[in-house]
Design a protein around this nucleic acid. Structure first.
Lengths: 334, 334
DNA sequence: AACTTTTATGTAAGCCCTTACATCACTGTA
DNA sequence: TACAGTGATGTAAGGGCTTACATAAAAGTT
């Protein structure tokens, strides 16, 4: 049961364990002949260094913690997949924690995952923007120990690095486009009060203001990010009149589509719909959804680049903003 | 930087490290007073046992490896989420590896993840059913070291435990239903030669045979599991005539829907469509998709239960089959 | 009172690495 | 020839935990 260890290899290769270790870590110079011999013996005996002992010695196990509210969300799933794949390319493993959206659950997730002595923490998805300091102070505490990378979240602090989609601009542009098309009652569908949702809302509002249009309270609706949930929610608002929809998530946009169909309203004829995230949902619905490409992969790539630079000792910027694209499909054919 | 360790706690609590360790592990009896004191000191000093040292000592870190071809697939994402959440409930962390579908990549994934001295391995998604032994022999090798749990895959062997959806029955039933509705040209859309895909195909074929109907080669089409890919593939088959579709994944079923729309064929009027997995796609499309609920959560629950029993020293069954439901929505309104 | 048990705790050996420092054999230089 | 410098390797000290075994104190037994 006890696998081969460094002593076995050392003995078989007729060298000291230090030399074996050096070969394994490719650290200081080892004579080519010796190296070759050691490698051969390692190979022959299927030697794999014990990660625990290694971790103990190095106080690092080349592991990063991934905290994600919900991997079954297509956008986040893609992010997790991308991060995992590429971090592995750098020799890092990922420990995953699906935290749920609750801020307290997230705190616990972080706490637990931290016990694994990870080298860095990646937080996927937006944080609450409530501004309540207690909610985010633990992140700052964590950042005291290891670098924290946020994908689409934003918290200011030492050793916290945020990569965000420019949600403000994206929604601003989308809203403007609807306004140009003559829409005057644009329903804003949102499901949270996260930092990112707030940016989107601000984009929506500013676009109105800058075009001299009023921002109507009644056109801001909170609902859950689910297709049927959103549909039903809208169905309940009998007196709500709108000529277009901007949703902060594709699921809600598709919900709006379902609502329109249920009510016999034509899309894009009578109302236009814009979603967010360019998830799979946006091409499975009918008509296919105009949506914002929130550049998940680009964000993750940027975060990984930053992380590697940082772990390599370089200094990196704390906030990186990535511009989004609006992908026009058929729910906004004017 | 060097955090508090067991020696610090021992000194502060005026006991030996063995006692601290006993308290931490709740192992053999410790005097209540002493225990309380130690716990208090631990609390006060934010002591967390070093996982590496712990791993070294116990040769286990309470971690399970999750290998998943593609977390951005909704079905698997849900499985990963469920597994992660519930394993954590038992104190186990999950290391994730998104392997891709290639069998060689999977082998590498398993090899790498194994170096982390995980306590168990979970393989999500079906294995190739080619029957080529080399492809699966490494799994048997792994199983020599730690238990292997397969979700929807099937390999026979010591220490390999498989939990599967009864894909054969599910497709058999769905096919039969279409046959009863008078369909005689049922297109079978598949994307792989996995064990699971083979079961589905067998269900499709047997249903035909048992009802005295021929199994037509031309009605078995391989395509990729993507909406537009499938649509385009079908669009290319100008001479293919069919009155219904059974797809082995929802994405392909939705692709068939897109195809029908592109060709001006009405669903369910002219053709019926049945998908598989009850993913989010199946409710976002239009009309909403009749699909097989492949019981992802139930499968995972069963796997976790088995795992815990096994790690607890019990004996468990090696193969568990779970019955599926057909969820009727509107692509099969006859 | 002289013992056996039981309960609580401590000691120290291991688990398998990394790495600072020591050593030794050369090469090159003065 | 003596010595500094270089390269290759070894020695041994951690790193923080678990746990078998030893010990000591308390309780029970005769």
């Amino acid at each position: 049961m006890r696998g081969v260890n460094i002593y076995d290899i050392a003995k078989l290769a007729d060298v000291s364990i230090a030399t074996v270790s050096r070969v394994v870590n490719d650290s200081s110079k080892v004579n080519d002949k010796t190296k070759e011999k050691v490698l051969r013996v390692m190979e022959e005996n299927h030697y794999t260094p014990n990660v625990f002992a290694r971790g103990l010695g190095l106080n690092s196990m080349k592991t990063v913690g991934l905290v994600c509210p919900d991997v079954s969300d297509n956008y986040m799933a893609k992010a997790v997949a991308y991060l995992e794949k590429n971090l592995r390319g750098y020799g890092y493993d990922c420990i995953l924690y699906c935290s749920g959206y609750d801020e307290e659950d997230k705190r616990q997730a972080v706490e637990l995952i931290l016990q694994k002595r990870i080298d860095a923490l990646v937080l996927i998805g937006s944080n609450y923007a409530g501004g309540r300091d207690e909610e985010t102070s633990y992140i700052n505490e964590v950042a005291g120990q290891i670098p924290v990378f946020m994908i689409n979240g934003y918290i200011e602090g030492e050793n916290i690095y945020c990569t965000l989609a420019d949600d403000y601009q994206a929604v601003y542009d989308a809203t403007e486009e609807l306004i140009f098309a003559g829409k005057r009652r644009i329903l804003f569908l949102s499901n949270s009060e996260s930092f990112s949702a707030m940016q989107k809302r601000k984009g929506y509002e500013d676009a109105h203001k800058n075009h001299g249009l009023p921002v109507l309270e009644e056109l801001r609706l909170y609902t859950e990010n689910s297709i049927h949930g959103t549909r039903d929610r809208l169905l309940l608002c009998r007196n709500l009149v709108f000529d277009s929809v901007i949703a902060t998530e594709d699921g809600m946009a598709v919900g709006a589509l379902k609502y329109a169909r249920a009510r016999g309203i034509s899309v894009p004829g009578e109302i236009s719909v814009v979603g967010y995230n360019n998830s799979e949902l946006s091409i499975s619905c009918e008509p296919e959804l105009t949506t914002v490409d929130a550049r998940g992969e680009i964000l993750c790539k940027s975060a990984i680049d930053s992380m590697m630079s940082l772990l390599g000792g370089e200094k990196i910027r704390q906030k990186t903003m990535i511009k989004c694209h609006l992908i026009k499909r058929h729910t906004t054919d004017f």
